[in-house]
């Protein structure tokens, strides 16, 4: 399960948003402006079942997300969903991987402490004996210039999504 974020764990000034999660419903998230730089030389790796429930995380994932392994395994991957990310990005991700193809994109992730970090993510379906049995996401350090291009792009996508839903 996935609960609202707790103000006690937040480092620094924060603002509140409500995000709508697929098949879960609303979640209150608390976000700050603290960006945590991606650690050099590391890959942040997680695996999920076919529904997007986390089944495995590596040490770099635990360190960057701020959650413990126990909190992560069994939780939906949207536990990292940042309110600045447009819904369309994740729709594209799920449309691609459920077809058995690889998805790649830049993602802004939300930490347990309200801070955020940018990654270049590649998600691959785990195909065993011809069936998709889960997914693996491997994140690496992004080129800052690509991130700077995504910031206004994602903001305008979000704006359109909000206008569309009114």
């Amino acid at each position: 399960m996935i609960s609202d974020m707790n103000p006690e764990g937040i480092v620094g000034e924060y603002s509140e948003s409500i995000i709508q999660l697929y098949e879960i419903g609303p979640r209150k998230v608390l976000v700050t402006n603290n960006e945590v730089p991606y650690p050099d030389g590391r890959l942040i790796v997680s695996r999920t079942d076919t529904k997007g429930i986390i089944t495995h995380v590596n040490r770099s994932f635990v360190e960057m997300s701020g959650y413990s392994e126990e909190e992560l395994v069994g939780a939906p991957h949207s536990i990292l969903r940042h309110p600045d990310m447009p819904r369309a990005a994740f729709k594209d991700l799920w449309d691609t991987i459920t077809e058995g193809r690889i998805w790649q994109g830049y993602v802004k992730n939300l930490r347990k402490d309200g801070g955020f970090y940018w990654v270049k993510a590649t998600v691959i379906p785990n195909i065993r004996k011809g069936r998709i049995v889960g997914y693996t996401s491997v994140r690496r350090k992004p080129d800052r210039r690509r991130v700077e291009e995504c910031i206004p792009l994602y903001a305008s996508m979000k704006k359109k999504e909000q206008e569309g839903s009114q």
């Binding site: 890959l43 590649t122 998600v123 691959i124 491997v138 690496r140």
Partner: peptide
């Protein structure tokens, strides 16, 4: 090994 292969494929993937 299957996991390592999937991981290598994410690293060699280019759109």
């Amino acid at each position: 090994t299957e996991f390592m292969i999937d991981l290598m494929e994410t690293l060699t993937y280019s759109p």
